[in-house]
């Protein structure tokens, strides 16, 4: 259980508000259940799916396969939705996916300035920072400064390409394959692919970082 609000910097203020919200959600669930609009067992399944089954490991497997299999990489860049479905990942908030590849010349970053659109089927639910006002406001304007908040500095001659996902197209960044990863299995390669590297706020890990 993770009932710690460590993303919040206003503990005292938020605690009373959160308990108010907590009560409201409980009341709502009671009413909806008693009215027969929701089945609590279905709610449990929805939560379980996104807490334990759908997450960034899906996307990491996609990237690892693209790194190891040139034909798969080609299919992924041509039709990411179909190529990702080959691995069994599809459905909600992954209905239309475009994969964009980082190179020494171009670094891709993904944001949704209007809400928090995110490729759930390959990355799971978005982190708080992705949904936050700082990320949504600044990424389209000063992505290098945003990258600095993540401790990432790119060479001056790398162009930054930001994808604001304003429609139902979801973008998956294929990070650059790190040096020293030659000969690793797909499973080991997937260990190098962080969630942030598939959003564009991070880079894939070097093999020495995850050993």
């Amino acid at each position: 259980m993770s009932d710690h609000h460590h993303h919040d910097h206003h503990h005292d203020h938020d605690h009373s508000e959160l308990s108010e919200t907590e009560l409201r959600v409980r009341a709502l669930e009671t009413i909806l259940t008693e009215k027969g609009y929701v089945d609590p067992a279905a709610l449990d399944l929805l939560i379980e799916t996104y807490e334990t089954k759908v997450g960034p490991r899906n996307g990491a497997r996609v990237v690892a396969k693209a790194w190891s299999d040139p034909a798969y990489r080609e299919r992924l860049l041509q039709d990411a939705t179909a190529a990702i479905a080959e691995l069994g990942y599809s459905g909600r908030q992954g209905e239309h996916i475009v994969a964009v590849e980082n190179t020494p010349a171009t670094h891709n970053m993904v944001v949704c300035t209007l809400c928090s659109c995110y490729p759930w089927s390959v990355l799971g639910l978005p982190p708080v920072w992705y949904k936050s006002a700082p990320y949504r406001s600044r990424t389209v304007k000063e992505p290098r400064a945003v990258l600095a908040d993540f401790g990432v500095t790119l060479p001056d001659d790398t162009a930054i390409r930001v994808w604001d996902s304003t429609a139902e197209i979801r973008y998956l960044v294929i990070p650059m394959r790190p040096a020293g990863s030659e000969g690793l299995s797909e499973e080991r390669l997937a260990d190098l692919v962080t969630r942030d590297s598939m959003i564009g706020t991070g880079l894939a890990c070097a093999p020495t970082e995850v050993a």
């Binding site: 993770s2 710690h4 609000h5 993303h7 959600v25 982190p127 920072w129 945003v146 908040d149 942030d196």
Partner: peptide
């Protein structure tokens, strides 16, 4: 600033899940 959270959970409170 953007404030990343290491090892962030899917939800931060039981009510968020519900």
């Amino acid at each position: 600033p953007v404030v990343p959270e290491p090892n962030e959970p899917a939800f931060h409170a039981p009510w968020e899940r519900r």
